[in-house]
Design a protein around this nucleic acid. Structure first.
Lengths: 349, 349
DNA sequence: ATTAGCTGCTAATGCGTATTAGCGACTTGT
DNA sequence: ACAAGTCGCTAATACGCATTAGCAGCTAAT
């Protein structure tokens, strides 16, 4: 029952040649030197056909060093429904590009190690099964990032990452979204509509994407007042709403769509009009039909494109031993219908 | 720049021991015999820590034969938006189980070979990178299936598959959904509501899932009349609707949700009431909020569960060298609101 | 006739790890 | 004191393939 796997040696024996010859026939055209006559070649191929032999990709990789596989590492599970909408567009883009470039995908789904956190440098790190690796996830473990940069393993991050310090440090190859510019543009639009008391719901530090939004926000504030800053995300809708109202803010910026959705709902349930009584801006979302009825004012994050570019960059790193750069893609503003105009003084003209 | 990768030999040199010792330290507890004193062990681990060495998973697999990776092969690309809703639940389930059982996932995204069709036994078959493989997709290439069955590579199909004939043939290990029973139940419900003229839109042959639906349908017909059979899927909405109306059918069974959606829309746009004037039954769909407003009468396919069970079965095949069986999971009827009651003769009582 | 060159193949080696047999230096038992 | 173990480690090998050096047999050139 446990028939040992067919190897080139078996084929060689059947065809009456040596293992080396079998390998040469398989890798065909490349060996321009010492050509193999058609007669022999045919004999070997016949044996292969009849036995259904296929080369072991592991051994192949072992001998050659590359196997045309791209790894995809996610710090969070890639598929769970909760994250699905977040990761799916990235995966779409990666798969598309990988397929075009003739690579297979290896999804690293390592069991969460100690403390429930996933780690790249686990005791059994499987990264090297792939020629290189795309890394997804909001937060990148800095220690691991440092090791990656110090090492010679090709990788590209999706999302901007701060450079790594230290003697072995350096810039991180990434393809990210330009949250600074996009957020600043949102603030500018709000200001143009007369808003001067702004609320911000979202962290000001932590992941690069958070910091970038916060920086973009402050960059464009330009005299307007930050009436309220709620650094915690995922709070209670009524609490958030009340705080915003009390602060006197006329527009609230949310880093999390989920927060915006619940606050929007809470406002409406209190007979507050959005954007009549309160404007809402969401700092980034994917270009897809929202399940929530409200069409928020926001900007779209080009997730597929980010993934495509990152994958491409990775392949260049692998194939041409290129260094990999830092790319920021622009986010497209989405007009939506939750950013209103503020009237000066008078209630009704 | 192209620093050669760190190997156990390097660690051995640094720690002043042999490569074998390093390997023994790494694989730790297993080697009960010939224990290694803590002093030496510590020396080796220090070297590992300081250099950041990680064992090469390829070489590991080469030496040991297994690497705790499950392959996932799909005949269609797994992520493209179009298929997303179809594959996503399977992937959820597979990832979940894989993670629980401590396996990584390898998504086989091979470039489409000749004629644009994906093949398992490509010139560079990467299946063997994984210890075993889950196979997804509506249609399974019979020739490839035959080779798989004949070979010793562990795999499990998601979805029922007919046994393979021939000397090396046999049953196919799978976890599928019981479309026969589920479809028959739908027909029975329609009949119980007075329907006796039925239309069927969907193929009667081809993939096992199609055949099963068709068989279940006929099984429960029981004297009722098949007023119309449209074997083509994805036809024009108005054409389908008209054919159904002309046939005198009072209820239409669709194998494809998409067809049902457009015919439903067409009917409503013609001021036909669903289910007042025409009942619609969809033969299977996923338990998720439909984008279409209509809540169809249908049955839910337990996709996540199928994937979980298949993954589990695969792991048993790998670890215990089990044979793998044939499992059919039940589909849950979904009441919906598109199956109405037929009044006898009288229009209004 | 000797050398040079070509053709058609094979032996040998390396890739990085896991594993096993076994060796030298001790310790223990009798 | 000698056999029989135990301890701590290493040499050697296998895994399946790609690749290189090179060998034998031949032909063509000098």
């Amino acid at each position: 029952m446990k028939r040992p796997r067919l190897t080139q040696r078996d084929i060689a024996r059947i065809a009456g040649v040596s293992q080396a010859t079998v390998s040469l026939v398989l890798n065909d055209a490349k060996a321009a030197a010492g050509r193999i006559p058609d007669e022999t070649r045919e004999r070997v191929q016949k044996a292969i056909r009849e036995t259904g032999y296929v080369a072991d990709p592991i051994a192949r990789r072992m001998a050659k060093g590359l196997n045309r596989i791209l790894g995809v590492f996610t710090y969070e599970p890639a598929f769970p429904s909760a994250q699905a909408d977040f990761f799916a567009p990235f995966l779409f883009g990666i798969e598309e590009t990988a397929q075009t470039l003739g690579y297979d995908l290896l999804l690293l789904t390592g069991a969460p190690a100690n403390r429930g956190k996933r780690r790249i440098f686990d005791e059994n790190n499987r990264l090297r099964l792939a020629d290189g690796c795309v890394i997804l996830g909001r937060e990148f473990d800095r220690a691991e990032l440092k090791r990656l940069i110090a090492g010679d393993y090709p990788f590209v991050a999706v999302g901007r990452r701060d450079p790594v310090g230290g003697p072995t440090g350096g810039p991180v190859p990434y393809v990210g979204a330009d949250y600074v510019t996009a957020t600043a543009e949102m603030v500018r639009r709000a200001r143009a509509k007369g808003h001067s008391m702004l609320a911000y719901v979202g962290p000001s530090k932590g992941a690069e994407s958070s910091v970038d939004r916060w920086n973009g926000f402050n960059l464009a504030l330009d005299g307007a007042e930050l009436a309220l800053h709620v650094p915690e995300v995922g709070g209670k809708a009524l609490t958030m709403l009340e705080a915003i109202r009390r602060s006197g803010a006329t527009v609230a910026f949310f880093t999390e769509l989920a927060d915006a959705v619940v606050v929007d709902a809470a406002a409406r349930s209190q007979n507050l009009s959005v954007p009549g009584d309160l404007s809402i801006v969401v700092l980034g979302s994917h270009i897809r039909p929202m399940q929530s009825g409200t069409r928020f004012t926001t900007f779209s994050i080009p997730r597929e494109e980010m993934a495509r570019r990152a994958t491409q960059m990775l392949c260049e790193r692998i194939e041409a031993n290129a260094a990999g750069g830092q790319v920021l893609l622009a986010c497209e503003p989405v007009e939506g219908e939750t950013l209103g105009t503020i009237q000066q003084e008078t209630d009704l003209t």
